[in-house]
């Protein structure tokens, strides 16, 4: 067993666990997008940052890839961690505003706006689907292609892969390609309807006709009443 300190509490975890697993085991919530049980840690989304060390050695690490060490002091929700997390959420919103999961994260962390150039990607390159395909489905039909700005996920040569069984596992795990409540303003990045007391869609008259995947949605409840 390894003894470590999480948020000031002296705890012990089994050897070989990651900081994320340790924190979750002892009930400290850490948000993640790219970590999933049964898939290898990847450290892509950086949402799971925690602060480790003391004094001058304090640093931020991704808890999903950092192994638990004897005597390690971990803070999962210090001011610096929360600030970093908010920034990451803003960046995620800037690239994939239509994802419900990212929307919910933003609401939960009280991110109400993002200050970057708005894009409408449908992928955050977290690699969940790639790992799902390889590690759980044993297929290796999709993978990363290219690099830098043009990095993308897909099959080789963009044709249907011979090893793909159309299991849909990649779509099931995807945190980005789900639709969200965009109402009539798709360019508006953050709805936050579930967390806002007065959701923006309530005032809109064409509310009845819209496609909405927000469930349960505060706005709908208000209008029904």
């Amino acid at each position: 067993m390894i003894n470590l300190t999480i948020n000031g509490l002296d705890l012990s975890v089994e050897e070989g666990t990651t900081l994320l697993e340790a924190a979750r085991f002892w009930g400290f919530p850490i948000p993640t997008l790219c970590a999933m049980e049964g898939l290898s840690p990847y450290g892509a989304c950086r949402l799971c940052v925690v602060e480790i060390g003391e004094g001058k050695q304090v640093k931020l690490v991704s808890s999903c890839t950092y192994p638990a060490q004897e005597g390690l002091k971990i803070r999962t929700a210090s001011e610096r961690v929360l600030r970093a997390r908010k920034m990451i959420i803003e960046l995620l919103l800037a690239s994939c505003p239509q994802s419900k999961i990212i929307q919910d994260l933003a609401s939960k962390h009280n991110v109400r706006q993002q200050r970057f150039r708005q894009e409408y990607e449908d992928c955050i390159l977290c690699g969940l689907c790639v790992r799902m395909c390889e590690e759980q489905m044993m297929a290796k039909a999709i993978g990363f292609r290219g690099r830098g700005e043009t990095r993308s996920i897909g099959t080789p040569f963009d044709v249907r892969s011979e090893v793909c069984r159309l299991c849909g596992g990649c779509m099931y795990v995807c945190p980005a390609c789900q639709l969200r409540c965009t109402f009539t303003e798709p360019e508006k990045a953050i709805c936050g309807g579930c967390a806002n007391l007065s959701p923006p869609c309530v005032e809109k008259p064409t509310f009845d006709d819209m496609m909405c995947y927000m469930d349960p949605c505060v706005a709908c409840e208000i209008v029904k009443k």
Partner: peptide
């Protein structure tokens, strides 16, 4: 090796 890896 998987074709995806080589293509990557």
């Amino acid at each position: 090796k998987a074709l995806v890896d080589i293509y990557g």
